[in-house]
Design a protein around this nucleic acid. Sequence first.
DNA 1: ATGAAAGCGCTAACAC
DNA 2: GTGTTAGCGCTTTCAT
Lengths: 358, 358
Amino acid sequence: MKPFERVTIKQIAKEAGTSIGTVDRALSNRPGINPATKARVLQVAQELGYTPNRMASALSRKKVLRIGVVSAKNPADFYSYIDQGITQAETELRDYGVVIERLYSPLLAPDEQRELLENLDYTKYDGLVINAGGEPSVPYINKFVAEGVPVATFNSDSPGSDRLFFVGSNSRQSGRLGGEMMGKLLGGKGKVAIIGNYLNTTTFVDRFGGFCEVIQREYPEISIYPCAECYSNPARAYSIMAGLLKEDLHINGFFSTGYSATVGAVEAIKEAGRRNVTVIGYDLSESIMQALKDGWCTSALYQDPFQQSYQALRLMVRHLIEGWVPPSKTLFVEAQVVFRYNMDSYTKEHLQENPFRY
Amino acid sequence: MKPFERVTIKQIAKEAGTSIGTVDRALSNRPGINPATKARVLQVAQELGYTPNRMASALSRKKVLRIGVVSAKNPADFYSYIDQGITQAETELRDYGVVIERLYSPLLAPDEQRELLENLDYTKYDGLVINAGGEPSVPYINKFVAEGVPVATFNSDSPGSDRLFFVGSNSRQSGRLGGEMMGKLLGGKGKVAIIGNYLNTTTFVDRFGGFCEVIQREYPEISIYPCAECYSNPARAYSIMAGLLKEDLHINGFFSTGYSATVGAVEAIKEAGRRNVTVIGYDLSESIMQALKDGWCTSALYQDPFQQSYQALRLMVRHLIEGWVPPSKTLFVEAQVVFRYNMDSYTKEHLQENPFRY
DNA sequence: ATGAAAGCGCTAACAC
DNA sequence: GTGTTAGCGCTTTCAT
């Protein structure tokens, strides 16, 4: 229990033979300072190993940093995890004077997002963190940035935009992982069918591409059955799968690259009672967890939505407070491999009472 | 950009018709206050929805919270990850006036830890976070706690002690996961050999128990070959494995429940050129990652040591500052399933430049 | 261009 | 038992 030991601006002022006001001007890059004094102060700060006290800074700012989070409400199954990440960031960042405002549309549909962004009073915010709706959201993001409000995207990106960074998953990488797992689980031979939500989305293309890359290179005895598209409709995925299973094409593996595709596919396999097929899906929900438990789904690849919103917010605050800039425009959170016996960590109840996520 | 909107003690004081000093006495549970006034103040605080401003609190404390972290240096391969977690916690918690002191012995051997704890001037610390050495460390931990210095353990526990909580992995659960993966990767049949570091440690017993539980219940066609002990010596694990492979007992799976066991086993399999065996190991290192890449190791179960030290520190600070108490004495971090194509996220380089771990 | 001073919300020391 | 006051390190405003 000793007094604070960190270097303060006061010490720098003394050392540099000036006042704390001037030190602040130098450190915070504010105008009204002689370049020579500025250089000297910076030099001293460097030598003393000064690190700013973020708490004192936030306290004296006397203003809150207001951050708007644009996302959706449904399907609640999925978005509640995102919301939990936001809540976590909210409680942690409150100490830094950060206030978060949720701006949710019912769905993450292009129209709904457009309307929301159209009517958004962006001048109220010091930063915007957006679960973006792809191409249609680009002009809005660019406008916000042009007007001086930094934007970060998460979960779903708007690649061409001027956003500062994107926090999400590496689809190509997770596709490769899926390929490897499928290859190993099938013992290197068989026939696998692939079903996706929309075949023309980059998410599908990347997951599919990664999957095929590995299968073709490392598991030549596994063939890939041409893929089907279910338009994010579990019922459609179900009927496609049911059809495939009936034809008996000796398919022993299914790779479904999206949430809805996984739900529908699993349902069909359960209905057909086919225990001898290996199913690798994406994302988690009550129904997928049940399938994991009952053995109708072999494994799920999960890209922790909690982490995506949580980290995007943390980094935006770092940008706003410390002027941090990302090393890359795209920041990937690790995909989690979920089997039956490590599934419990991802149930909603578990997450809610997880002491590490408070 | 508006002024702070949170309720302050000043507002509570005004509302309760008293001074901020009294409010503080009530809120911080300090003596010298009339029970009646205290109740009234608490009531008002409750009504106004007061949340303390941790920044202002840390600032005005004028003291640092000094936390000692007891751990080891070697094998550096492993402990450097633990150290990274400590560094992360250190930078994040610095704002809260937390100073961390590293107290590392060369190895985590009973004698070395005992000596370190014996000579530890625990009165210097507000809290101690210990990578404990099991039973031998219990009396020391109990003494520290008795003398008023709270203790938390991480990575390795001292179960019978008075520590506030333990942050580590759930061995039984990861054993089950290993069993499930082995069962699925072997297509439900075969013979698997198990090798561990010390057969009488709880870690081994739990991992082994979880593994057998699942294999016996769900994969009756898989037989388990009696286990071998390698005393944390890779060379010994190597010779055991080489022997087993030579005898040709039709073993097609290996489950190694510890780091050294995994390293040695993988080496033997590589030497024998046996591609047809499935190996599930524990932990990660340069050599294991190389084996994953070359296909000599199928998958590794990884209990993120970074998270263990990082979270233990965070929670200890929460305890010290907010009086938080854990919901359970044992807090588990999730085991990660690592294959070749998601391995990169766990390389040291990747972790170092990971923007989420700064 | 620079210095002095007020004050953010809280704790701790000191008066009464 | 209670009120008052002096800071913690920083930002901001107002003099100079």
